[in-house]
């Protein structure tokens, strides 16, 4: 096994152990979307123009993507904790592969997310949401969700490594909860004021949500939207490629670069 793969697997194991000892953040970030789903689906939904059952089918993919987008917050918290509590400095003094520390974190996060999405899917099924497309498309939707999570985790790791303190990372990370609000995850963007609509349509969350809705067969691709939303699968893959392509090398460099 190469040094990178070996070291990454050790760091991966460490993050799973941490999760077992201190599951609070993971439990919180996996529970919130379920609370949101129930609140939007049964409290706000009926007040919207869309009929209730259709809205809930529309909402479940949105919340799956919002959960994936939480990779920013979780990635930032974890990286900031590690870099301000000293354990990362010990890793830096060890003869380890430089990329293994952030890569181990990102890959452990991917596994926890894959498992953590299951309760949300079950609640969604109980609320009447169904996979209406083909099995292959459904697999594509799950793959896209995990790819997007991987991408947002790298954004989070980069921000967490650059953070001045755990508190600063906590505040900024908490604010990322708002990102799905500026997208089509919870509401269609058609009726938004034009400036806001532009922002929402260029939000990567919108492209991924549209792709997931399309692949699950829950809602058609809206017409006349921005390019990433009008071509949701290609748009989502492009967004992920950009986020990973920019943030992964920067995060690895930031981790490995001594001050």
């Amino acid at each position: 096994m190469s040094t990178l793969a070996y070291d990454t697997s050790a760091v991966f194991g460490r993050h799973l152990l941490r999760l077992r000892h201190a599951p609070a953040i993971a439990v919180m970030t996996q529970t919130m979307p379920i609370v949101f789903l129930l609140f939007f689906g049964y409290v706000l939904g009926p007040a919207l123009a869309m009929p209730g059952a259709d809205y809930r089918a529309f909402l479940v993919p949105g919340l799956l993507v919002a959960t994936a987008a939480n990779g920013i917050m979780t990635g930032m918290f974890t990286a900031a904790q590690d870099s301000h509590r000293g354990v990362m400095d010990r890793f830096r003094t060890l003869p380890m592969s430089r990329a293994s520390v952030p890569l181990g974190q990102a890959s452990a996060d991917l596994l926890t997310t894959a498992v953590g999405l299951l309760p949300l899917l079950l609640v969604g099924l109980a609320m009447g949401w169904r996979i209406e497309g083909s099995a292959l498309e459904a697999v594509g939707a799950f793959g896209l969700l995990l790819l997007f999570r991987f991408a947002t985790t790298w954004v989070g790791i980069l921000l967490g490594l650059a953070s001045r303190s755990e508190e600063a990372a906590g505040q900024l990370g908490g604010a990322t909860f708002m990102l799905p609000l500026l997208s089509n995850a919870y509401i269609p963007t058609d009726n938004l004021p034009s400036a806001l609509r532009t922002v929402a349509e260029w939000n990567p969350i919108s492209a991924v949500t549209t792709a997931v809705r399309d692949l699950f067969g829950n809602a058609p691709v809206p017409e006349g939207a921005s390019w990433p939303v009008a071509h949701p699968v290609a748009g989502s893959l492009a967004w992920c490629a950009v986020l990973i392509g920019v943030c992964l090398p920067l995060a690895v460099r930031r981790y490995g670069r001594p001050g």
């Binding site: 070291d7 050790a10 194991g13 460490r14 152990l17 941490r18 000892h21 201190a22 509590r85 000293g86 354990v87 400095d89 010990r90 890793f91 830096r92 003094t93 060890l94 003869p95 380890m96």
Partner: peptide
């Protein structure tokens, strides 16, 4: 060739003592 212990190069507080040492043993 070095070992470092100090105010900053620390262990993982969430892991047990044994888990920490096994982790560093694995990495080394």
């Amino acid at each position: 060739n070095i070992g470092v212990a100090g105010q900053y190069a620390s262990v993982d507080g969430d892991l047990t003592g044994a888990e920490n040492l096994r982790l560093f043993a694995k990495l080394l």
